[in-house]
């Protein structure tokens, strides 16, 4: 299981913001070995800004390959994203609420590099994803970067 800090460069210009947004948050994913170096992955992230919240819920496949002392991996993930912008809209003539959040498609392609610390912990030095989402009736091309710790719940077999 991976858990760590995550940064999201949100393509807010796609729905009329003057600038794209830089959001900070967390990324958690669970990887279950399926066949040799191929794993099934469940991935979730939450990112926050002053008036913005962006969530992803993804699942897909991940391929891992040894590289030097660590392991490089690549994955393809598919699922949903939820975008919640704090934009006011009138609920009656003299009171204001906020526009509803938007749920839509999410696709992520990316990879990263893990450096093992011991049999239990691995340092995920970097994971970068191109994150394509569809919210508020527009498409966003985002970049997500994460780093943190991978915790292994299965011990390696001793030789």
């Amino acid at each position: 299981m991976f858990a760590g800090y995550s940064y999201l460069r949100l393509d807010a210009k796609s729905y009329g913001f003057l600038n794209n947004s830089n959001l900070n948050g967390v990324n958690i994913n669970v990887s279950i070995p399926v066949y040799h170096q191929l794993s099934a992955v469940l991935d979730s992230s939450a990112h926050f800004g002053s008036d913005e919240r962006f969530y992803t819920f993804l699942a897909g496949a991940q391929y891992t390959h040894p590289l030097r002392n660590g392991r490089v991996f690549g994955h393809a993930l598919f699922g949903k994203s939820r975008n919640d912008e704090n934009i006011a809209e009138p609920t009656t003539e003299f009171t204001f609420g906020r526009i509803p959040s938007s749920l839509g498609l999410a696709i992520a392609f990316g990879g990263g590099y893990d450096y093992p610390l011991n049999s239990r912990f691995t340092l995920r030095i970097i994971q970068v994803d191109y994150l394509h989402t569809k919210t508020y009736e527009t498409t966003q091309n985002n970049i997500r970067a994460s780093a943190g710790i991978v915790i292994h719940f299965t011990r390696k077999k001793k030789k």
């Binding site: 760590g4 800090y5 460069r9 600038n19 947004s21």
Partner: peptide, 26 residues
């Protein structure tokens, strides 16, 4: 170590011009 990693990553991103919430004014 999580916030430390976050700070480290933010530092890297800052050097690439991504330190503030709004950048690349158009």
């Amino acid at each position: 170590s999580f916030p430390a990693l976050g700070i480290a990553l933010l530092t890297i991103l800052s050097s690439a011009g991504c330190s503030s919430r709004t950048i690349n004014s158009t």
